[in-house]
Amino acid sequence: MNEIDIQRRGFLKTTLGAAAVAVAPGMLLFQVAHGKSEGVSSKVRWGMLIDTTQCKEGCNDCVTACNRENGLSGETKATDSQWIRKIEIKDVSNGRELSLPMMCQHCEHPPCVDVCPTAASFKRADGIVLVDKHRCIGCRYCMMACPYKARSFVHEPLTDQNPDVPRGKGTVESCTLCVHRIDQGLKPACSEACPNKAIVFGDLNDANSEIAQKLRSVASTQVRAELGLNTGIRYQGL
């Protein structure tokens, strides 16, 4: 290596270093000025604990609240979207009857996210599983993969959507855990609407939250736990 090369290298090093020193505070200031942080944090994991002993058969309040909040028609034809539905179950062996709401279980390892070819299905850092409809091509592979049948495909053109909840023909959608409400510090609509307070919403990772404390004291189950998806929605009394 000759003299000139070494000099050039030194020169480049100093310039780059100086440039970095000059630009870095500016970048930081820019971020502060624009209020940009890292976005939602993975320290939080949103979830729900549903007390099936408190869930009344025939009561549909959570479903109605969801439909109203998210602008769903509320019709139940096979082509209509249902983000949350009430399931009535009856134990075959002893005849015990239960009623419970079923929706996207916001898995830690969501199959819909694994199979989505365009990465439109994704899990937000705080555990909410969403569809990025800007990217969804409507292949419906996620609907094939979901063990809870939680997703719906929009079969018709839609108009007059809720400005907070964009939805459109040809894309797949499901329960968003009312992400637009969570980002404002509110609870999901179903949890708020339940007359018996059977749906407890909160941060599973925060030891002091109501849901975490309850999960420590009562027996809870995950639906289809054998799949090992570690759902964010847990059921009590099943």
Binding site: G39, R124, H134, P163
Partner: peptide, 21 residues
Amino acid sequence: GRDDAVRKGLRDDKHSLKNCI
């Protein structure tokens, strides 16, 4: 803004489509 809002929950209210409208 749409990618930040949907994927990271960074809702820039000032430059949002809702604010335009």
